[in-house]
Amino acid sequence: MAANTRDIRRRIKSVKNTAQITKAMQMVAASKMRKAQQAAIASRPYAEELSRLLRPFIDMLGDEDRAPHPLMDSREVKRELVLVLSTDKGLCGALNTNLFRELSQFDPAKTDFVCVGRKGAQFLVRSKCSVIAEFDLKDNFSFHHAQTVAKFCMEEYMKGKVDRITVAYSDFVNTLTQIPSTRIVAPVHSFDLGATALDGKNDETSGAKITPPDVTEYLLEPNKDTLLDELLPHFVFFKIYHLVLESRASEHSARMVAMKNATDNAKQIIKDLTLEYNKIRQASITTEILEIATAQMVLS
């Protein structure tokens, strides 16, 4: 009996510690989440504007037989590069698992993977996929980091090793919902300009975005090729950067929710254990009283 209550007391204590840790992690995730969400949202006007800027070039494309830039040239897809944006750390619920399930649509024999985030790399190596590069997802992932990643992918594309670049990431909808998604970033097409990097999440602005610009004829300075040379890679860089921001927002949201659930569970367990403990204690007191009473009755 005494051993049993002691066991329960010990378990209550350990669960309490766990709850404290998960609570702290929840707080950390919440503050990171706010920052990540703000960054993701703040970069949306830029992404929109960049897509708009590319539209005149795409329109001009119609009356030429040859793609003006390799990044606009859609080749037959013999080999594909998939950039997987996962997380570095776990404890974020089913976020990574869902993302990896999404990856099963790619044929491992025809796909090269590039990973951002350690979890993705671990998973892909375990499932024996060809991982050609791996990048760390640092906490202060800047545009420059994204550029390094994007440059690597684009070099593969330009060398003709791969014919398409797809990004697999967790699309941030809101704190409770993250959808594993894929998006093609190269070659650049007109059809992915409209909803680029935004997915029409804010419908009011996306409505305005779809209307074609009032002017279709632009003077281009210094000239079309130079501008395309600058604009297209920048577009791909930024798109990848934006998607990283989105998946970061998803990661921290998912982690916060997972930690909140863990804290709630721990509290429930503490409650149950406390009840159990009190019951046992009460039972032992009752037995003792009973024994005393019986002893007295026998004596009298």
Partner: peptide, 9 residues
């Protein structure tokens, strides 16, 4: 204002 449409770096 009323500049000719132009895109530049």
């Amino acid at each position: 204002p009323m500049h000719v449409p132009l895109i530049t770096k």
